[in-house]
């Protein structure tokens, strides 16, 4: 790791380009956890809804989830394009977990798409189960993957991974409740506000439990976050949760949504910030060691700078075409 001939002398057009790409990879991961997170939340809250409410929830979720899921593909491919060794290491190290995530996404996608294809109760029941199971398991397994990557665990199943899995499940519930509050009206909306408040309290509790567990039972990790960093993350989490609950009570639904997005931002920010300078802690690979050559990074940067604004444009367009409350039967 010390004798690196080719990484010592390389020049990037912008000195901190590798670090910018590290930040970009995590920004894309954050966008994915945020956008598909509310899809997962819709899928979990769906379990508690009755027939008509389910139709409304499908109408809210139907036009957008496919585009949201693409952020996972973008995350995987930008990691591959900028840090191929990390992509190869993490995916092959946690082999079965990756297939578990993919299986959960299949259950979610197939369940929600196929539901509309036939009008029979039994068919709907099977599809609904698949949809709920996939929406619950996907964020859980994703949390496990993120924890294992961040802390460099060799074994896939461990306490920290399970704790972070639960954390992402809770976060997704809050995100889903926030999205549905904006997209629905009436009783369903009131219920969602309530779940949103409960979920926010739950999220803070699970965050504290996770931090406590890591400190007491599995300290270290690599690299270990400093107390100041952890304190900042806990402070940020509590602040955004509290702001969110206030906004929720005052029916400032967009303000609440922003606070929930803040929770996701703190989560991903903490993850990335405390992982530096490593990008694959298990292999002790630093950003500079794992990044691709300047030519490749430059090409990647040109494409990213050109197309990411366009992608954001598509999302603004998509969400404004389908803005306003969703009504059952639209889907």
């Amino acid at each position: 790791m010390t004798e690196l001939v080719s990484t010592a002398a390389v020049q990037y057009p912008v000195e901190s380009l590798p670090e910018l790409w590290f930040a970009f990879v995590f920004a894309v991961l954050g966008a994915y956890l945020l956008l598909d997170g509310f899809d997962f939340g819709v899928g979990m809250l769906y379990a508690r809804a009755d027939g008509d409410e389910r139709e409304t929830m499908h109408a809210a979720f139907g036009p957008v989830w496919k585009a949201n899921e693409v952020w996972l593909v973008l995350f995987g491919t930008v990691l591959f394009a900028a840090f191929p060794a990390v992509y190869a290491n993490v995916l092959s190290r946690h082999y079965l977990l990756i297939f578990a995530i993919l299986a959960a996404l299949v259950l979610r996608g197939i369940g929600s798409k196929l539901r509309e294809e036939r009008d029979s109760d039994r068919w709907h029941r099977v599809c609904d189960r698949s949809f709920v199971a996939g929406s619950t398991l996907a964020p859980f397994f994703l949390g496990m993957l993120v924890a294992n990557w961040r802390f460099g665990f060799e074994s896939t199943i461990n306490g920290t991974a399970i704790a972070v899995g639960l954390l992402l499940v809770t976060l997704s519930v809050v995100l889903g409740a926030s999205f549905l509050t904006i997209k629905t009206r009436g009783d369903l909306r009131r219920t969602m506000r309530r779940y949103g408040r409960l979920g926010s309290v739950g999220y803070v509790a699970v965050s504290l439990a996770t931090i406590g567990y890591i400190a007491l039972a599995e300290p270290g990790g690599s690299p270990a976050p400093s107390t100041a960093e952890t304190a900042a993350a806990v402070g940020g989490t509590i602040a955004f949760a509290a702001l969110g609950i206030v906004a929720n009570r005052r029916r400032r639904d967009y303000g609440w949504a922003l606070s929930v997005a803040g929770l996701a931002l703190v989560f991903v920010g903490y993850l990335a910030w405390t992982m530096r300078p490593f990008v694959d802690p298990a292999a002790a690979l630093s950003i500079r060691e794992a990044v691709v050559s300047p030519v490749a990074l430059e090409v990647n940067s040109i494409v990213a700078v050109t197309f990411v604004p366009l992608i954001i444009g598509y999302f603004v367009l998509l969400y404004s075409v389908f803005s306003g409350p969703a009504t059952a039967g639209d889907y």
Binding site: F80, A81, A296
Partner: peptide
């Protein structure tokens, strides 16, 4: 990675 990851 530099040749496959980029296009993907």
């Amino acid at each position: 990675g530099e040749l496959i990851g980029g296009p993907l």
